[in-house]
Amino acid sequence: MRVLRCGRRAALVELDDLDAVGRLHAALRAHPLPGVDELVPAARTLLIHYDPAVTDHTRLAAALAALPAAEAARTERAGVLVPVRYDGEDLDEVAHRTGLTPAEVVDRHTAATYRVAFCGFAPGFAYLTGLDPVLRLPRRTSPRTRVPAGSLAVAGEFTGIYPRESPGGWHLLGSTDFPLWNPSADPPTRLTPGTTVRFLPLEAPQR
């Protein structure tokens, strides 16, 4: 773990992998450090905002190094169930490339329990880990210029839902009307880091 300065009010913690980020993020949520007012996880880093009137980089780095290993165990927030229509443009292609039928792709995708690792790309876009290894495919070689809002997609080790229409290179499995972003709400999204997610098919897939 490396703790780097990031201006006067933040530190950037570099970690070995996504799982290490999740453990540290969970530990700091469960045991907040004095002066820390915001945590922003990413794939290999955790950005920690703090109040310089309460703490500083040296004290924060020392507190992070002193976190007991037992307190770094990952905890999960209450789960969210997302209803999905598995009608995506790439469902048949994903089935072909994985050696499965479309129904088997849906079965594997809905069998998993996912966890929000971090958010990014667009407001409300959550990167969900827990994807069945058989369904892990690289991004499309030719990204689409338009992906409809609510599209459920996979790429690499992640599953995600596009919160609004945008370009995108992930494989589209389905669609949902689940509300992903409401700037008037607190928090503006239910898919915050640490939240567990399950997908519920709205219709039985064709066998």
Rank of each mutant, 00 (worst) to 15 (best):
R2A: 14
L4W: 14
R5K: 03
R5S: 07
C6D: 04
G7T: 03
R8Q: 14
R8I: 11
R9V: 12
A10N: 01
A10K: 02
A11C: 13
L15C: 08
L18Q: 08
D19C: 03
D19V: 13
A20M: 05
V21C: 05
G22L: 09
G22F: 01
H25Q: 10
A27Q: 03
R29P: 03
P32R: 04
G35L: 05
V36G: 06
V36P: 07
V36S: 04
V36D: 01
E38H: 09
V40E: 00
P41A: 04
A42N: 02
A43E: 15
H49T: 05
V54G: 12
V54Q: 14
V54S: 14
T55Q: 10
T55H: 09
D56M: 06
T58S: 15
L60Y: 03
L60Q: 05
L60E: 02
A61S: 06
A61Q: 01
A63W: 10
A69G: 05
A70Y: 08
A70R: 14
E71L: 15
A72D: 07
A72N: 07
R74K: 12
T75L: 13
E76Q: 10
E76K: 12
E76T: 06
R77Y: 12
G79D: 11
G79N: 03
P83K: 10
R85T: 11
G88Y: 06
L91C: 09
L91A: 07
D92N: 12
E93Y: 10
V94E: 01
A95M: 09
R97V: 07
R97Y: 03
R97L: 14
T98A: 12
G99N: 07
T101V: 11
P102Y: 14
H109T: 00
T110P: 01
T113F: 12
V116Y: 00
C119P: 05
C119H: 07
G120D: 05
A122N: 08
P123K: 04
G124H: 05
F125N: 00
L128M: 05
T129D: 13
G130C: 00
L131C: 01
D132T: 09
D132G: 11
D132V: 07
V134E: 08
V134G: 02
L135P: 00
P138F: 13
P138Y: 15
R139S: 04
R139Q: 01
R140Q: 13
P143S: 03
R144T: 02
R144I: 03
R146K: 14
V147W: 01
P148S: 12
A149T: 08
G150Y: 05
S151I: 00
G156V: 00
F158K: 00
T159P: 02
P163L: 04
R164E: 14
S166W: 09
P167R: 05
P167D: 11
G168T: 03
W170G: 00
W170N: 01
H171N: 10
L173V: 06
T176K: 03
D177Y: 07
P179H: 03
W181I: 06
W181G: 02
S184Y: 13
S184W: 10
A185G: 08
D186M: 11
P188E: 12
T189H: 08
T192V: 13
G194R: 08
V197A: 06
L200D: 12
P201L: 09
L202C: 11
E203Q: 15
A204P: 11
P205M: 08
P205G: 12
R207N: 15
